[in-house]
Measured scan of single mutants.
Amino acid sequence: QSYDVTDELPLPPGWEMTFTATGQRYFLNHIEKITTWQDPRKAMNQP
């Protein structure tokens, strides 16, 4: 797995990073009650 500086940034409020039983990373948004494979920190860093 390649290193990404985004991995060091804190998640936005309400978000949690977790893993499936097979080790795949995904993200939970407790405020909007959604899950996604997309890292919400990457969207924050788009110009």
Rank of each mutant, 00 (worst) to 15 (best):
Q1L: 09
Q1G: 09
Q1E: 08
Q1I: 14
Q1D: 14
Q1T: 04
S2N: 15
S2F: 13
S2V: 09
S2A: 07
S2T: 11
Y3Q: 08
Y3P: 15
Y3V: 04
D4L: 09
D4S: 11
D4E: 11
D4T: 09
D4A: 11
D4C: 15
D4H: 08
D4G: 08
V5C: 09
V5F: 13
V5Y: 06
V5K: 13
V5H: 07
V5P: 07
V5A: 11
V5D: 09
T6N: 08
T6R: 11
T6M: 14
T6Y: 08
T6E: 08
T6S: 13
T6L: 10
T6P: 14
T6D: 10
D7A: 12
D7K: 13
D7E: 06
D7P: 06
D7N: 13
D7H: 15
D7V: 08
D7R: 09
E8P: 11
E8M: 15
E8R: 10
E8N: 09
E8K: 14
L9G: 13
L9M: 14
L9D: 15
P10D: 11
P10Q: 10
P10G: 10
P10C: 05
P10K: 10
P10L: 07
P10N: 09
P10V: 08
L11W: 02
L11R: 01
L11N: 01
L11E: 02
L11Y: 04
L11H: 03
L11Q: 02
P12R: 02
P12S: 03
P12W: 01
P13E: 13
P13G: 09
P13L: 10
P13N: 13
P13W: 07
P13C: 07
G14Y: 05
G14L: 01
G14T: 03
G14P: 05
G14M: 04
G14R: 03
G14D: 07
W15A: 00
W15P: 00
W15T: 02
W15E: 02
W15D: 04
W15G: 03
W15R: 03
E16C: 07
E16V: 08
E16D: 13
E16P: 01
M17A: 13
M17K: 08
M17R: 07
M17L: 12
M17E: 14
T18V: 13
T18A: 14
T18R: 15
T18K: 15
T18Y: 11
T18L: 12
T18D: 14
T18E: 12
T18W: 07
F19K: 12
F19R: 11
F19W: 13
F19S: 10
F19I: 14
F19M: 08
T20D: 12
T20H: 04
T20S: 10
T20Q: 00
T20R: 03
T20W: 00
T20Y: 01
T20G: 05
T20E: 05
T20N: 11
A21V: 08
A21G: 12
A21L: 07
A21D: 13
A21E: 14
A21R: 10
T22C: 13
T22F: 06
T22D: 15
T22Y: 05
T22K: 11
T22S: 12
G23W: 00
G23E: 04
G23N: 05
G23Y: 00
G23R: 05
G23D: 06
G23F: 00
Q24I: 07
Q24W: 01
Q24Y: 05
Q24G: 07
Q24L: 06
R25G: 05
R25K: 14
R25E: 07
R25I: 13
R25A: 07
R25N: 04
R25F: 04
R25H: 05
Y26G: 03
Y26K: 04
Y26N: 05
Y26S: 03
Y26R: 04
Y26P: 01
F27Y: 13
F27Q: 00
F27L: 01
F27E: 03
F27C: 01
L28A: 09
L28F: 06
N29Y: 02
N29R: 02
N29F: 00
N29E: 00
N29H: 07
N29I: 00
H30R: 11
H30G: 06
H30E: 09
H30W: 05
H30P: 08
H30S: 11
H30L: 06
H30C: 06
H30M: 07
H30F: 04
I31R: 12
I31F: 09
I31W: 11
I31V: 10
I31T: 14
E32P: 01
E32D: 12
E32V: 08
E32S: 13
E32G: 11
E32L: 15
E32A: 15
K33N: 13
K33Y: 02
K33V: 01
K33S: 08
K33I: 00
K33R: 12
I34M: 09
I34N: 06
I34D: 04
I34K: 06
I34G: 03
I34C: 11
I34T: 12
T35C: 07
T35H: 03
T35R: 04
T35E: 05
T35I: 05
T35K: 05
T35P: 01
T36F: 00
T36W: 00
T36Q: 05
T36A: 05
T36H: 00
T36E: 02
T36N: 02
W37M: 07
W37S: 06
W37L: 06
W37F: 12
Q38A: 10
Q38F: 11
Q38D: 09
Q38P: 01
Q38K: 13
D39Y: 02
D39P: 03
D39E: 03
D39G: 02
D39Q: 00
D39R: 04
D39S: 02
P40W: 00
P40F: 00
P40S: 00
P40R: 00
P40K: 01
P40M: 00
P40C: 00
R41N: 04
R41A: 04
R41T: 05
R41K: 02
R41V: 04
R41H: 02
R41E: 02
R41P: 01
R41Y: 00
K42F: 09
K42L: 10
A43W: 15
A43C: 12
A43Q: 12
A43R: 13
A43P: 14
A43D: 15
A43E: 14
A43S: 14
A43H: 09
M44I: 07
M44G: 14
M44Q: 14
N45G: 13
N45Y: 15
N45L: 10
Q46A: 09
Q46D: 15
Q46V: 14
Q46F: 15
Q46L: 13
Q46M: 10
Q46P: 14
Q46N: 12
P47L: 15
P47H: 03
P47A: 12
